[in-house]
């Protein structure tokens, strides 16, 4: 058995966490609208964010809490499509950060959010199991085309076209004329990662930020740039804690936020 037990535990926890992303509690008390230069924020800030933002946003949330001891930041991390669905069904939240513009558009069309700002982008990479069962190889120099990387008969996992990472996967596969390559369309990028890590597929298309830690080997490819996902963030119109929501988006769009995103593997929008 080539799967480290620690990974299995982690993936089981992730899987079970996926199911419970449901109703977040209402957003607590109003923030202090002093209007001064240094408003003291309090109450609860509820942020709905794409699962790929988990690490960066958790850090930023802790920073904000350190600056405002009376503030509690709560996150609901899940697939952007699921989050957009929850918001249009009336889930109370202050901030929504999506993994692509289509999901933000769904929320905006429902009249729940005004202008969104782009804050990051993410690109796909071709991840493969540590023992590389299909013997994927990168040409010695330059960034290869995805078409060069994919042998004719390999088992490939991608996200379903209904979710942001799958829309991007569809695009890059179309560019290299290999839309026939996938063997499974996963519900989210976690599903792809699980199958890669278990060694059940030869390769999977995942986000650059998923393989940034270096635990999972992955190749970059040329087509990913044109098919990148851009991440928008918006303060929701009915935000129970609008002041804290703005403080969070300001932090995200600040130099500090930008650096945290770059460190995690995101690109500029």
């Amino acid at each position: 058995m080539r799967v480290p037990p620690a990974f299995l535990l982690a993936s089981l926890l992730t899987l079970s966490a996926c199911g419970s992303a449901g109703d977040a509690p209402p957003g607590g008390s109003e923030g202090d609208r002093g209007g001064g230069t240094l408003p003291t924020l309090s109450g609860t800030l509820t942020v709905f964010a794409a699962a790929s933002l988990t690490d960066v946003f958790t850090d930023l949330g802790e920073q904000l809490e350190a600056q405002h001891p009376d503030l509690e930041v709560q996150f609901n991390f899940a697939g952007s499509s699921a989050l957009a669905g929850q918001l249009t069904q009336g889930a109370p939240a202050d901030v929504f950060a999506a993994a692509d513009e289509a999901q933000m558009a769904r929320v905006a069309e429902a009249g729940l959010a005004g202008d969104a700002e782009l804050f990051a982008s993410n690109r796909l990479m071709l991840a493969f199991p540590a023992d590389n069962p299909a013997g994927l190889r990168k040409p010695p120099s330059g960034i290869p085309s995805l078409g060069e990387l994919l042998p004719e008969d390999l088992t490939l996992a991608v996200c379903a076209p209904e979710v942001p990472c799958g829309a991007a996967a569809q695009e890059v596969l179309e560019q290299v004329g290999r839309t026939d390559a996938p063997d499974t369309y996963e519900e989210d990028v976690r599903g792809v990662l699980t199958k890669v890590q278990l060694g059940e597929v030869d390769a999977g298309l995942v986000y650059r930020t998923d393989v940034m830690s270096g635990e999972i080997p992955a190749f970059a490819f040329a087509e990913s740039e044109a098919a990148q996902n851009r991440y928008p963030v918006a303060v929701l119109d009915d935000a129970p804690n609008a002041a804290a929501a703005r403080a969070f988006t300001d932090l995200l769009l600040s130099e500090e936020g930008r650096r945290a995103l770059t460190d995690a593997g995101f690109f500029e929008p």
Partner: peptide, 17 residues
């Protein structure tokens, strides 16, 4: 058993690894 865990468990026995 949560069915997704059942699915992972099936991999560990019947998956190609």
């Amino acid at each position: 058993l949560p069915p997704v865990v059942g699915g992972v468990a099936l991999f560990l026995v019947l998956g190609r690894q």
